[in-house]
Write a protein that binds this DNA or RNA. Sequence first.
DNA 1: TGCAGTGTTGCTTC
DNA 2: CGAAGCAACACTGC
Length: 289
Amino acid sequence: MPELPEVETIKRDLEKEVVGRRITAVEGDWPKTVSEPEFAIFQKEVTGRKIKALKRRAKNLIISLDKEYLLVHFKMTGHMLVADAGELHKDHWAVKEASSPLADRVNQFIHLAFYLDNGKVMALSDLRKFARVSLVSKERLDTLLAHLGPEPLEDDFDLELFKKQLSGKKGYIKQILLQQEVVAGIGNIYADEILFDAKILPLRKVTDLSNIELKKIYKSIVKILSKAVDLRGTSTSDFRDAAGEKGKYTDIRKVYRRTGEPCLAGCGGVVQRVKISGRSAHYCPNCQK
DNA sequence: TGCAGTGTTGCTTC
DNA sequence: CGAAGCAACACTGC
């Protein structure tokens, strides 16, 4: 699931490959991938534009063109690949070379492709077709992103700001960490990993947490997300970087999708899973209080 | 075999 | 108003 570390990985990969390039053609086989404007107009408007810069805001990738912006949200299974245009079979949107990491099955679901003036292609692969791309003005971009809370890896995200974002919030800490208006960019994987690191049970009510516990959660947010960016994200299922490769945080995760396995802190406990407002939460009942 | 589970977000329903 | 449920999809695992 592309959360903050995964989108940041894609952003950094693309930065090296596509900035300064001009888009020579746009093709797609699933028009709904483009939210706005209508697909044919999008195709016409984006063709010929130059890519100026890349940004990430929460789980969104923002591609600045010489005019307007491409706003990309990967949702569940989307990721952006860069390949030689010749590597793609245009007929069925699949990658040709079996030796390449791009040949991985999850990279074979290409629904939108931006051909570049250096013979490469920036391609959105998305098994479940939930990802969305928009071409928007600066004003529209700001409107669409206005609800988002602070970026947890920015300098201004300190303990006081975290507490302020939580004030007035009710419900379980796990549920609150997933709310993008509270802290931007945390999803199910890192919410579980953060709470394990902070030794706090996901079913704790936010209003019951002590100052010491809030500080632990704050520190774990910064620590875990930074570590995950360093390791290029988590690939328990579909996430891949721009080269089609898996993220390495998968190997050091402590609880996410480890139900029934021994706690890696060596406490003798077994990782449990519960449903919290429709989402799974993984935790160690020994380590987390 | 078939159906629940997977998880992000926005929209609908209560 | 806010919380809960569901739809958007497709594949995996039981």
